[in-house]
């Protein structure tokens, strides 16, 4: 058992406690809805960061798996043949299979090629969803509602039970991603990100490793999709549209890549922004685009990274000032903060 595991488990339990307690303290339904959206998009952003931040694979097509999770789950539930857990597992497994096929083609490609081929495959999946009207409802999305038959004594038609279940699933997935990123596999991925040639020389099967994380990340994104499908009781082609992937990338960038939970911060920020933008204007794209341009060109990094760096620099300056003020007998004081 890894030493950090206990700490991760404790953090996960504390996080879960907080998520369960929040709607009890503030019982407005709007908060609960907001948080369920946060779970869904948060899982997509977190799983995308396994590719972007951990492995250095900038996928522009991650929302495809979000969508396949949502559609597969919705269709299975509408068939009325299987209980919720089986449908959920089948949806995740099915998405993993799709990701295996797409990934097998994509991970062989270098950097920017990878980005645009993942985007191309996402739009392919989007076009299947839109054209296969008989199965998916086309433009209108999967309508008619997704039934939520009770299972194991849980009745998801009760909004509180639904929320709690989603929170548990969300925390479990985050914990799983944490374990993967801290495992030897996770460190191999970091090596591939930093120096693929060296990883290759050391006998690492780079392609297989990339494919492994691609499939895992896609499965995690599909969980996000099925949470959303379960909540909104439907699935829509917009889930698979390229803007959804763009938003996921923006969430990662907003939250920064230096912290494991950074993408969740980004999800929270973007969701809050979207919330207010849609209230005040219908020109959502114009506002969002401008905000992105200002942040990317102005700060040149994510909001959370910006704060993180600012705090670090401040700490460094303070440490330097302290060292300079202390008697110089112990250690020569560094002249500027950067060397600390």
């Amino acid at each position: 058992m890894r030493a950090g595991l206990v700490r991760d488990l404790a953090a996960a339990l504390a996080g879960l406690g907080l998520l369960i307690a929040l709607p009890m303290l503030f019982p407005q339904p709007a908060l609960r809805d907001f948080l369920i959206y946060f779970f869904a998009y948060g899982l997509m952003a977190m799983s995308l960061n396994l590719l972007v931040g951990l492995t250095g694979l900038v996928s522009f097509g991650h929302a495809a798996y979000f969508a396949t999770g949502a559609y597969a789950f919705g269709l299975l539930m509408q068939s009325g043949l299987v209980p919720i857990p089986v449908a959920a597992l089948a949806a995740v497994g099915g998405t993993a299979l799709i990701a295996l096929v797409v990934g097998a083609i994509c991970v062989r490609l270098k950097e920017i090629y990878f980005s645009f081929i993942t985007l191309a495959f996402q739009m392919f999946i989007h076009s299947i969803i839109v054209t296969w009207v008989g199965l998916t409802g086309g433009d209108q999305g999967l309508r008619g509602g997704i039934p939520r038959p009770p299972f194991l004594g849980l009745d998801l038609n009760d909004a509180r039970v639904l929320y709690a279940t989603c929170a548990v699933v969300f925390v479990l997935c985050i914990l799983a991603m944490r374990q993967v990123s801290q495992s030897p596999f996770g460190y191999t991925l970091r090596m591939i990100r930093d120096n693929p040639a060296r990883a290759n020389f050391l006998g690492v099967d780079v392609t297989a490793m990339k494919l492994g994380i691609f499939v895992f990340a896609a499965s995690m994104a599909s969980v996000g999709g099925l949470i959303l499908a379960l909540f909104v009781s439907g699935a829509y082609p917009e889930f698979a549209f390229w803007t959804t992937s763009g938003e996921a990338i923006f969430m990662i960038m907003l939250g920064g890549m230096k912290l494991f939970l950074g993408p969740l911060v980004g999800t929270l920020l973007l969701q809050t922004l979207n919330h207010f933008v849609t209230i005040y204007t219908e020109h959502h794209g114009l506002v969002l685009g401008t905000v992105i341009l200002v942040i990317v060109l102005g700060l040149r990094r994510g909001l959370a990274d910006f704060l993180f760096d600012a705090i670090q620099a401040r700490r460094a300056r303070r440490a330097a000032a302290l060292a300079a003020a202390a008697p110089a007998a112990f250690a020569p004081a560094p002249l500027d903060g950067r060397t600390v």
Binding site: V58, F60, I249, F250, G289, I292, L293, V296
Partner: peptide
């Protein structure tokens, strides 16, 4: 590439 993608996405 992330930044380039974002700039294009915004545009």
């Amino acid at each position: 590439i992330l930044m380039q993608l974002l700039v294009c996405y915004a545009m």
